[in-house]
Design a protein around this nucleic acid. Structure first.
Length: 629
RNA sequence: GCCGACGUAGCUCAGCUGGUAGAGCAGCUCACUCGUAAUGAGCAGGUCAGGAGUUCGAGUCUCCUCGUCGGCUCCA
């Protein structure tokens, strides 16, 4: 955690997607004093970069002050809440008498430029908390007063420039001209102190960089991210669609999307089988009682789809575990059966509040690659390690290379005894230790029935997405009273691990699409080869190529439109088909193909055998590249 | 759910202060049979998300519902 935010409230990144959030920490007074002390010392080269980052944060934080002043100049009566620097810029939360529109940002920006041009010095003042209270009371800044009331420090600091004063720890730039090349980006609502029961404020997001070039690069980067948006690509590549008539949060896979999903599912089935999992299938709808036993009803009724028939409550399954429990209980189990691993591609439905839905990344209906491992206490750690290994192996197979691991501990209001929580958390920590990867602890972020390990994966443009999760659960075996016969011929209670590998298939596909910007690796491409006959007389040859390639398991289409070669090539490229084969007189004559890659590169006069071998190798190795030769 | 914006042809979008809809691409038809990112011409295509209201008159104004987007909150 670094000095990312200064005004005493946690910041959030300007996220590149719902799953892309990274919490940005709050700096404590203690950390700040360390920071100040260190500033005085001579710095190692390694710290120079960090120092530059801090300078940027300072600049952005000052920009936030200037923003607040600009807004207040336009809308007198605006109350200040908080305005920290965040990973990608800054924001200020304001209570503005009118609601501002995106079109107003330009004018506010102009006003900020005017303030910057004045180069007003930012002056730090230290005063007693009491004096500050009086000051902000007088300034009619209720949010600042509330912040002060909750502070414990005897002395606090304020920063002034011109007639603007803000409660703030700082540090700041020397004067308002030093807030860099900035741009206001968006307006959003934000609850005061992140509490949905408190007033909704207006948050203005902006960003700022030391040079105009850096700002431009940032904006270009945002456009790039927009081009990768899986919702846009899903439409353009004809993979899936959403329908107002069907309701929000559920997806319809088109033929090409279904091929992609099928490939992912085949991968999962095969890998689970290899690792000793047994596939099971459970119904989508069953009695509510089961959810009482599992405890889910208590915690998640509001998020479950329930219905009633003949006086009985039914629930559309939001989880797969109770179903697997029932299967476990169908016969006596022995320690010799352990670990027992049930795997299901289980489609679940959870009611999510309308505002949180986001393409494939946050849905109401989705399919998990869910498994439940029943094992003995002794087997727990090795099973967790195996899960971690499986998860990372799979993500790597799909081309992800960097991960972050998190260990989430006991949350408020959870079930089970301290001893059990202690034991499960320790098992996860030990496994992580043993696996030898660094991880962070997320205090209180565990599930109600147990602690968990979360894996986040980094995509091609540096964003992190929520991926696999591994949860230890001593609680559900207890609630369902499942046992196995030990070597001592006495009943024992198994431990249960809930885990997903790619997690939600839909979400994973969304991440995959964004990671590759739609240009999927050959093995995942719904159409791997597009054959383009130059003229009608080449159609027969083209169909022959298709047949031969299909015999090798390659997915091929022939573009027989009566169109120019150029147009058909263009279409194939836009569809991001990895290989386009153009077939004309020369190819027919020599029995060859000419291969064009979606990168634009092309090679002519290749024998079909050579191409077949090349592409097969790429598929078999799950290569992310197109080096077929 | 909350704050704000938005919803016009399959797609991307235009349509000023209200006067019963327009382009490009896609589609269809015809001609062209073409060599590595758009051949040309013609045709067809919309109850302006849905509903209610104001008005002589609503794509344009008001309200409700559905959906989408940016955030907040939430995510077993």
């Amino acid at each position: 955690m670094g000095p990312d935010a200064f005004c005493g409230q946690p910041g959030r990144t300007l996220s590149g997607g719902a799953g892309g959030r990274t919490g940005v920490g709050v700096i404590s007074a203690r950390q700040l004093s360390v920071w100040r002390a260190r500033k005085a010392e001579s710095m190692s080269a390694a710290e120079t970069k960090r120092e530059a980052l801090e300078a940027r944060q300072t600049m952005r934080h000052s920009a936030a002050h200037v923003l607040a002043q600009a807004v207040r100049d336009f809308y007198p009566g605006t109350k200040l809440a908080i305005g920290p620097a965040i990973e990608e810029g800054f924001y200020y939360d304001l209570d503005i008498p009118v609601s501002i529109k995106p079109d107003d940002l330009g004018a506010i920006e102009e006003r900020m430029r005017a303030i910057a041009a004045e180069a007003l010095p930012l002056r730090r003042e230290e005063l007693s908390r009491q004096a500050a209270l009086e000051l902000f009371h007088e300034l009619e800044e209720p949010f600042k007063v509330e912040l002060l009331e909750d502070m414990e420090d005897e002395t606090v600091s304020i920063y002034r420039h011109g007639d603007f004063a803000d409660l703030c720890r700082g540090p700041h730039v020397e004067d308002t001209s030093r807030i860099g090349s900035f741009k206001l980006l968006s307006i959003a609502g934000a609850y005061w102190r992140g509490d949905e029961k408190r007033p909704m404020l207006q948050r203005i997001y902006g960003t700022s960089f030391a040079t105009p070039q850096e700002l431009q690069d940032f904006l270009t980067m945002r456009e790039e991210a927009e081009k990768r948006d899986h919702r846009r690509l899903g439409k353009e590549l004809d993979l899936f669609s959403f329908h107002e008539e069907a309701g929000a949060g559920v997806v319809f896979y088109h033929p090409r999307g279904a091929i992609l999903r099928g490939i992912v599912e085949d991968f999962l089935k095969e890998e689970h089988r290899k690792r000793g999992y047994q596939m099971v299938i459970t119904p989508h709808l069953f009695k509510g009682d089961l959810w009482n036993i599992s405890g889910h009803l208590d915690y998640y009724v509001d998020n479950m789809y329930t219905l009633e028939k003949e006086g009985t409550q039914y629930v559309v399954k939001p989880m797969n575990c109770p179903g697997h429990m029932l299967i476990y209980k169908t016969k006596p189990r022995s320690y010799r059966d352990m670990p027992l691993k049930y795997f299901e591609l289980g489609t679940v439905y959870r009611y999510e509040r309308s505002g949180v839905l986001h393409g494939l990344l946050r849905m109401r209906g989705f399919t998990q690659d869910d498994a439940h491992i029943f094992c003995t206490d002794e087997q727990l750690e090795e099973q967790i390690i195996e899960c971690l290994d499986f998860a990372l192996y799979s993500l790597r197979a799909f081309g992800f290379e960097e991960f972050k691991l998190y260990l989430s501990t006991r949350p408020e209001g959870s079930v089970g005894s301290d001893a059990v929580w202690e034991r499960s958390t320790q098992a996860l920590a030990d496994a992580l230790q043993h696996y030898g990867m660094e991880y962070e602890v997320d205090p209180g972020e565990g599930v109600f029935y147990g602690p968990k390990i979360d894996v986040k994966l980094k995509d091609a443009i540096g964003r992190y997405w929520q991926g696999p999760t591994i949860q230890v659960d001593f609680n559900m075996p207890e609630r369902f009273q499942i046992t196995y016969a030990g070597a001592d011929n006495r009943p024992h209670q198994p431990v249960m691990i809930h885990r997903v590998v790619l997690a939600g298939i839909e979400r994973f596909l969304g991440v995959l699409i964004e990671h590759y910007g739609g240009a999927l690796p050959v093995w995942l491409s719904p159409v791997q080869v597009m054959v383009i006959p130059v003229a009608d007389r080449h159609l027969e040859y083209a169909l022959g190529l298709k047949e031969q390639l299909e015999a090798r398991g390659i997915r091929v289409e022939v573009d027989d439109d009566h169109q120019t070669v150029n147009l058909k090539i263009r279409n194939s490229q836009l569809q991001k088909v990895p290989f386009t084969l153009v077939a004309g007189d020369r190819e027919v004559e020599g029995g060859t193909v000419s291969v064009r890659l979606r990168t634009g590169e092309d090679v002519r006069g290749v024998s079909l055998e050579e191409f077949e071998e090349g592409i097969s190798k790429l598929v078999d190795s799950r290569s992310t590249g197109l080096e077929w030769r």
